[in-house]
């Protein structure tokens, strides 16, 4: 693992370290972290919101002494602030759920490959079952079952995503288990723990790790979709997705900014995650640094 990261870092020095997607993603993260400091308004605080200024167009001056740079939404919340706070929720939800899904999926997949027999059958039946349905459907069923709330959303996303990691990790681990160096380790009568952690995991983990950025992108989109369908985060604490959703009814009456700007922010976020993710995956692909 250490060698893997080191070699990735070494590669980084040769490549363009400051590609556009990376800068964009870094900006997003900075903005999310600093949101309470830089947002003109706290959209969660009813005292700071002026209902009579609802649906103000971009550039309108507000009574609270704000300039509504991107306008206000149907409840009078400043769109810039909604985006900044929504960004936090979207990122927290997607990163938490992807990390947890990766951990669970990786453990399940590697265990299935190493122990085989009924462990493998049990885990992979479940994985196959789940992967034979579209992710959005699984997330939908999960959230309908679990009920509303941010914690439930995270749980639903973990349920929807762990199987992808499990299948990848199992596939890789299975091909590693069949390699002679694993046989050699067994012939030494190494303790099972050492075989798994010293030999199997370090060699199986890379492809699953490269999945994480891409899956975070998926998680952002999934959360946004669920929120859009009214099954996600509560309306008073909108994520980027629910901010777009809130603007949908206004779109048809011409108040396009309520959904356009949060949507653009969302698109940029997912695109930058995906591009950086692809980049990471290419760099960590063993076929690219075999020599």
């Amino acid at each position: 693992m250490k060698a893997l990261i080191l070699s990735a870092l070494k590669k980084r020095r040769h490549g363009p370290a400051l590609s556009a997607p990376r800068v964009l993603l870094a900006t997003y993260i900075l903005l999310a972290v600093a949101a309470p400091l830089i947002a003109p308004q706290n959209p969660y605080d009813p005292l700071q919101i002026y209902g009579w200024e609802a649906s103000s167009p971009p550039g309108a001056a507000g009574g609270g002494g704000y300039l509504y740079l991107l306008g206000t939404d149907g409840l009078g919340r400043d769109i810039v602030s909604t985006i900044l706070y929504g960004l936090r929720i979207s990122l927290v939800v997607s990163i938490t759920s992807s990390a947890a899904a990766a951990l669970i999926g990786l453990t399940a997949g590697v265990s299935a490959a190493y122990f085989g027999k009924w462990v493998d059958v049990a885990i992979m039946r479940l994985v196959d079952l789940q992967l034979s349905l579209p992710t959005i459907l699984v997330a939908l069923i999960a959230i309908v079952t679990l009920g509303p709330g941010i914690d439930r959303i995270i749980l639903a996303l973990i349920i929807a995503q762990w199987a992808t990691y499990a299948r990848i990790a199992r596939g890789v681990a299975l091909s590693e288990v069949g390699k002679p160096y694993m046989d050699a380790a067994r012939l030494m009568r190494l303790p099972t723990r050492r075989i798994i952690f010293r030999h199997l995991l370090p060699n199986s983990i890379a492809p699953a790790i490269t999945l994480i950025p891409i899956e975070i992108g998926h998680a952002v989109a999934l959360e946004a979709t669920l929120s859009f369908l009214g099954l996600g985060v509560p309306i008073d604490k909108p994520s980027l997705g629910s901010a777009v959703a809130n603007g949908f009814q206004y779109l048809l009456t011409g108040q396009y900014w309520i959904s356009l700007f949060p949507g653009l922010a969302l698109f940029g976020l997912i695109a930058s995650i995906n591009l950086v993710g692809e980049d990471v995956r290419r760099k960590l692909d063993p076929r690219n640094h075999a020599q």
Binding site: Y181, L187, R198
Partner: peptide, 17 residues
């Protein structure tokens, strides 16, 4: 553990990490 083995393809017989 009573018998050791030497395998055909040395490129996959050693833990690459």
């Amino acid at each position: 553990g009573r018998v050791q083995m030497i395998f055909q393809d040395p490129s996959v017989s050693l833990n690459p990490r």
